[in-house]
């Protein structure tokens, strides 16, 4: 690939930088780090309220961006993809800390056996699982048909279960727009399911 100046790279969108990074331009990755490390730190601080945890999470997020660069697709904004990685890492850390605390408090000192937790029997039969999988495939297909603007916010809200404030920050949109897009995205998704996936089976 032809050598490209840093100045030229700096003018590129995040998504273009990611594309260059995927093509082997590591300088593009460095620019993404420069663009986002402070913003990411501030954002993560709202989750952790701990600067050391934030440092670790920012580092881990960029490590995952680096490692998973080829799994990024332009159907998502780079920032949303990256923030989603960061949020998941933050949530995992929070759960891990919570679990460690729970074990410390509730462990029975008389129970010397290290018994694994019993998995819940969901009682789902193979046919049910298959049907469920088919439904999920259709749902995923419909979700991918939503425009990026709508998909981004409904995924963050209903799949990632982020707050409206977090979504407004990630998507860089006013709160009113976020709420409106989420509602419209959900309605549009349902419309797609009714019109294309289950035509004629659901009446208004």
């Amino acid at each position: 690939m032809e050598a490209m100046s840093r100045a030229k790279l700096q003018q590129m969108s995040d998504e273009d930088l990611m594309e260059h990074f995927q093509s082997g331009y590591e300088e593009a990755f460095n620019l993404l780090v420069d663009r986002y490390q402070d913003r990411l730190h501030n954002f993560l601080y709202r989750y952790t309220h701990n600067h050391q945890d934030c440092e670790d999470l920012v580092q881990e997020t960029f490590f995952r961006v680096f490692r998973s660069r080829h799994s990024y697709e332009r159907i998502a904004k780079f920032s949303t993809w990256m923030y989603t990685i960061a949020i998941n890492l933050a949530k995992s850390l929070y759960k891990k800390k919570k679990r460690m605390t729970t074990v410390t408090i509730h462990k029975d000192p008389d129970d010397s056996e290290d018994r694994p937790m019993k998995l819940e029997d969901t009682g789902i039969l193979p046919d049910d699982s298959l049907h469920e999988k088919m439904c999920m495939d259709e749902l995923e297909k419909a979700l991918m048909e939503l425009s990026e603007d709508f998909r981004e916010v409904v995924v963050l809200r209903d799949i990632q279960q982020l707050t409206y404030e977090e979504i407004a920050e990630i998507a860089d949109l006013p709160m009113g727009t976020v709420k409106s897009r989420i509602n419209r995205g959900r309605a549009h998704l349902q419309e797609l399911l009714e019109n294309h996936v289950y035509p004629g089976t659901i009446s208004a």
Binding site: S71, E73, T80, W81, L139, V155, R186
Partner: peptide, 26 residues
């Protein structure tokens, strides 16, 4: 639509430590 997405979210609920940290689109 919200209910459908909630069902999808439940599918992504994996045990701690096994959760994929990439986004849905990746």
């Amino acid at each position: 639509g919200k209910k459908a997405l909630s069902r999808m979210a439940a599918q992504f609920e994996l045990p701690v430590g096994e959760k994929d940290t990439s986004s849905l689109t990746a």
